[in-house]
Nucleic acid binder design. Structure first.
Length: 282
RNA sequence: GGGUAGAUGCCCGAGUGGCUAAAGGGGGCAGACUGUAAAUCUGCUAGCGUAAGCUUACGUUGGUUCGAAUCCACCUCUACCCA
C-alpha cells in the first residue's frame, strides 16, 4: 500500500504545479483537497487546474459536486477515501493537493464521533440571538462553553448542536479524539509550500487579474442562484457586486486580492500547526 | 482673478480648548479553529523602553492660552462654484 503524499500550502503558492511534478516523480495521481474546487462550474473563481494540466496526469475530485449541495469536511472525506483507496489499489501514489486545512485534517486524522450537521436545527439556531445560544450551551455543557470562543457564533452553534442532537455533552464526545493524533501524524508524509509574503502577494495579484480576464464574471453570473453554497468562495460576492454595478473593476480586483491575502495568512497559520508537514521554501 | 469648502495616523474618517497617542472602519501583523472552513472568531497596530516613562504626531510657519487637532493670522495644496 503506497502512502498518499500530501501537498499543502496557502492559496496561489503553486500547489497544482508542484503536484504535477510530484505525480510524475512518484507515479501518482492527483486528488483534490480544496473545498471549492470540488464544485462544478466554479473552476475559474476557485482557480482549479487548467485543461492542459488535467491532461497530463489523472486528476480526481475536481468539479464533482453540484452547486446545489452544501459540502462539509465529512462529506469530503466520504468522497476522498474511496478515491484514494482506488488509486492505491492500482499501485499508484495518491498526491493529495489542496489548501483546505479542515478537510485535510479530517482526511488525515479522522473525525471525532460527533453528530452530523442538521440543517433544520441550524436554521432554528440562526434565528436566535447569540447570547441565547451561549446561555443554553453554558447550561447544557459548562466545560465546552468555557473552552469555546463565545463570540464566535459558528462555534457556539456547533457545540450546542452536538449537545442537542446527541443528548450528551459536546465536551465529552470531543475529548479523546486528539489522543491519537500524534501517532497518526508520524505515519503521514507531505509538504507545505512556503513563500515570502511579497512573493505570495504578487502571485495572488496576478492570479486575480487573470481570473477576472478569463470568464470569472460569466461563471459567477451563471451560479447566482446557488450563492448560498459556493457563494462563500472568495471573489464570488465581489464579482456579484461588480456585475450589479455597485463597484468598479479596479475596486473588485483589490477587494478580491485583499480577501485572498487574508485567507492565505489563515492557511499559513493552520499549516504551521501541522508539524508532520515538511516545509518547502520556494 | 474672485468665492466657498476642506487638509487628521499606512488609507478612509470622527473629533471643534484639558478626560486625545487621537472614536470607528479598512488595510497590515499575530493567533484560534474537528462536520458552513475560500467560513467564523480573537488580539495588536507612531517610535524607544521589561516598566514607570520619554520622544515625535492632526498641511506649513507663527500667535492667543496655564493648556490647541480643536481659537487667530500668514502661507502651501486640494475640490467645487463664479469669471
Amino acid at each position: 500500500m503506497i502512502r498518499p503524499y500530501y501537498i499543502c500550502g496557502p492559496t496561489a503558492s503553486g500547489k497544482s504545479t508542484l503536484a504535477l511534478e510530484m505525480a510524475h516523480k512518484l507515479d501518482g495521481e492527483i486528488v483534490n483537497a480544496d473545498a471549492f474546487q470540488l464544485y462544478r462550474g466554479l473552476e475559474i473563481v476557485s482557480a482549479a487546474p487548467s485543461a492542459a494540466e488535467f491532461a497530463q496526469v489523472p486528476h480526481h475530485l475536481y468539479g464533482v459536486l453540484d452547486p446545489t449541495v452544501s459540502a462539509d469536511a465529512q462529506l469530503y472525506v466520504g468522497l476522498a477515501k474511496p478515491v484514494i483507496a482506488e488509486i492505491q489499489s492500482r499501485g499508484k501514489t495518491p498526491i493529495v493537493t489542496g489548501g483546505s486545512g479542515l478537510y485535510l485534517k479530517f482526511l488525515t486524522h479522522g473525525a471525532a464521533p460527533l453528530p452530523t450537521a442538521d440543517a433544520a436545527l441550524r436554521m432554528e439556531m440562526d434565528a436566535r440571538p447569540l447570547e441565547d445560544l451561549v446561555a443554553q450551551l453554558q447550561q447544557l455543557d459548562p466545560v465546552e462553553a468555557s473552552r469555546t470562543a463565545l463570540q464566535n457564533r459558528r462555534f457556539v452553534s456547533r457545540a450546542l448542536e452536538i449537545c442537542l442532537l446527541s443528548g450528551q455533552k459536546a465536551s465529552g464526545l470531543r475529548d479523546g479524539w486528539e489522543a491519537q493524533t500524534a501517532e497518526i501524524s508520524s505515519q503521514l508524509r507531505g509538504i507545505v509550500i512556503q513563500r515570502t509574503r511579497p512573493d505570495l502577494h504578487a502571485r495572488i495579484a496576478l492570479r486575480t487579474r487573470a481570473m477576472l480576464d478569463s470568464g470569472a464574471l460569466e461563471e459567477v453570473a451563471a451560479l447566482a442562484e446557488f450563492s448560498n453554497n459556493c457563494g462563500k468562495a472568495i471573489g464570488f460576492r465581489e464579482i456579484q457586486a461588480l456585475l450589479a454595478g455597485e463597484i468598479d473593476r479596479a475596486t473588485c480586483e483589490e477587494l478580491i486580492n485583499a480577501a485572498t491575502r487574508q485567507y492565505a495568512k489563515r492557511q499559513e497559520t493552520w499549516f504551521r500547526r501541522e508539524k508532520w508537514l515538511q516545509a518547502r521554501l520556494t
